[in-house]
Structure formats: structure tokens, C-alpha cells
Simulated assay, not measured.
Amino acid sequence: MIDSPDSPDNPIRLPRKPARVFRSDVRMARLRVGDAVRVTPVFHTEVTGPRGPVKVTFKLEYLQLGGTFKVRGSLNALLEAGDDGRPAVIASGGNAGIAAALACAMRGRACTVVVPESAPHTKVAAMWAYGAEVLWHGTSYAEAYRHANELATERGALQLHAYDLAAVVAGAGVVGLEIERQVRGRPPVLVAVGGGGLLAGIAAAFGPRGRVIGVEPKGAPTLHAALAAGRPVDVRVNSIAADALGATRVGDIAWNVAKRYDVGSVLVTDDAIAVAREYLWREFRIVVEAAGATALAAIQSGAYLPAPGERPVIVLCGANTDLATL
């Protein structure tokens, strides 16, 4: 089980006002980050669905620097903070740590990533490759997060967050602005959900004009559970995508955006995720991690059925994986 920093067994929380992210924040993030990150392409194609071929558009965000959309948010947060020389600290089970390490390397900042013992070696190796100090602490994300809080205080560091920091969400939302320019009309966009940073950013970028659907493993239904309960609640996590979608509670920012823009959620099984991941490799020679295939799993399993004439956009969000697991 991977714990969220908002879990009830985590008594230490960052003092912060509830943050809200809007399209204006995402537009500012795009201006701030500029061409320091890649504009990832889209690919119009067909995939196999339960009722036959389904027309879709892939947003190839797994081609982003560092193999993850998260570098957009980390870099935006660093640029917003200014070049004050402080090191950065983040707790992460994987992609957020890679993104922070890369963004800090780009800005000449020192970076420390605190990871739980369960962090995949492939992702830890990527953090090292970008020059980060990696510290193992505890067996859960919550324990790593508590230690990251302590380190940030001791070192006077800038503390980044994997998904629940306004600048991080706004940076991720630039993916939505790109989709607007690349895809005609306003098709629904399917996005994998962990803590909800990417979903919140894209939904904020679209505002009331767009439609975003969260796709979650049945073993990690943070947004789905929050929508059912009417508020964020803790869930138990047990999924093959847990190293990237392993938050136990949806972020406060994501919850605010989901309520504001009526964002929905569908659930998929681990088997469906594994099938979608293998399908991407077999049919397109696309290598993604389990989280990167989660949105496609909704189409192939029938958890989301496009309306007649609808061509949904599927965000393939990350590719930091061990090739031996394909």
C-alpha cells in the first residue's frame, strides 16, 4: 500500500491555503516555461474496442522530457519560485521525483528526492541520472513524505509536491492547451488519475468548454471514491499502476477542479491495464508504463463507450518502465 501525504496516519502537513487553478494560471505556466519542454505530438488512429474498431487520438505525452508529463509542473514551480538558490526537496514513489530532478538540473538547483523502499529501481536510476540526491525512508509514501517535510525545514529548501501544488497543476495543464491547438472540436479527453494533478490541470485549461474523464485502476480509485462520498476520502491502493497512480486520496486542487467542471471517473481492472499496455507495444511499438496505458484501458475494456462520431483523446502520460516487464 502506498500512502498519501493527506492520509490520517500522517500528522505532518504543509501549512497552505486551499489553492484553486484556472485557465489563466495554465496560460501563465505556458508563457513561463516556454520552449524549455517539448510540445508533444498527437496521433490519430484506431484501436480495438469491445464492439469493434474505435477511432481515437493519442496525445503522446510519454515523449516528454524525462518520460513523464510531470516535468512541466516541476519546472513551472521552480520558475515561479525564482532563482533564490534554495535546494528543492520532494517525496516521490517515481515520476514526480524524476521530474523534479530533471527540472532542478535544468535550473542549476540541488535536488533531494525522498523515496519509500518500494520505489522502482528504474525510476530511482533516472533520478540519479539527473543528479538528484536520493534518500530512502520508510516503507510507504507517507513515511517518505514526513521525512521530506523535515528535510525541507532543516535545509530551508523549496518543497515541491507530486500533484497538489498550484504551480505543478498549472504546469501539467499546458497539456490541455496543446490538445486544444492540435485537435479539432472539443472531444472528451481521457486521463489517468492518481492524485489528480494532470486531470486537474487539463480540466482547468479547458474550463467549462471541455470534457475530461478520469480513468482509475479499481485498486486505486481516489477520484471515484471522492465523487461517491462527496469529499476526498482515503482508499486502499493495490494496483499494478501504484508506483505512478498510488496516492490514497485525491488532491485538494483536483477535487476542487473536478467539482467545478463536473469531471467524471471510470474504473478499469489491472488486467485491462496490462492488456492495453501490451497492445500499445504490439500494434504501435509504443512503450509506456502501466499508468501510461490506463486511459486506453477504458476504451478497450468498454468502461468508457464513445458516442457515435466521437473520437476521444487518450493521454499516454508516462514511459518510465522496465522493458523486461513488457
Rank of each mutant, 00 (worst) to 15 (best):
A100R: 02
V212F: 12
I299Y: 04
E289S: 08
G93Q: 11
V21K: 11
W128D: 00
G171Q: 01
A91G: 14
L60A: 13
A99Y: 04
T112Y: 13
G138Q: 14
G176A: 04
L31I: 03
P221M: 08
R209V: 09
A148F: 13
V315T: 02
V33E: 03
P120Y: 06
Y145W: 14
Y163P: 01
V263D: 06
V37M: 01
L165K: 11
V215W: 01
R231I: 13
V257K: 01
L60W: 10
G230E: 12
P217E: 00
A242M: 14
A297C: 10
D9M: 06
P187R: 04
T57P: 07
I202P: 02
S239G: 14
G318R: 12
V56Y: 06
E178L: 02
V33D: 01
K55L: 04
F58S: 05
P208H: 12
G173K: 10
H121A: 13
P217S: 14
P208N: 04
V134R: 01
R30H: 10
C104A: 13
L102R: 00
E80D: 02
V37S: 06
E180W: 08
W128M: 00
I240N: 02
V134H: 02
A295Q: 06
V257M: 00
A170D: 11
L305H: 05
Y261C: 00
V266T: 02
V191A: 02
Q300V: 02
D164S: 14
I179N: 05
V189T: 15
R282V: 00
T122E: 15
A162M: 12
A129M: 15
V56H: 04
R181C: 03
G156H: 07
R181W: 05
G82C: 10
H44T: 13
I12N: 09
K17H: 09
V183F: 06
G108Q: 09
Q300D: 03
S140N: 13
P5G: 03
G97H: 08
R236V: 15
L267Y: 10
E46R: 05
Y304M: 08
S4T: 14
L65F: 13
V288P: 09
G309L: 09
E46N: 04
T122K: 11
D25S: 09
G195A: 14
P18K: 03
L190V: 11
L280I: 07
A204S: 15
P41H: 06
T248C: 13
L198G: 09
F206M: 11
A162L: 08
D6P: 06
V275N: 09
S92K: 03
E80L: 08
F43S: 15
T57W: 04
G34A: 12
D270H: 13
R32N: 12
T153G: 03
W255R: 07
A126P: 04
H224A: 13
N10Q: 14
T222C: 12
N95Q: 09
A148I: 13
R16I: 00
K218W: 11
D3T: 06
N256W: 14
R249T: 15
E46Y: 01
I253R: 05
A77F: 05
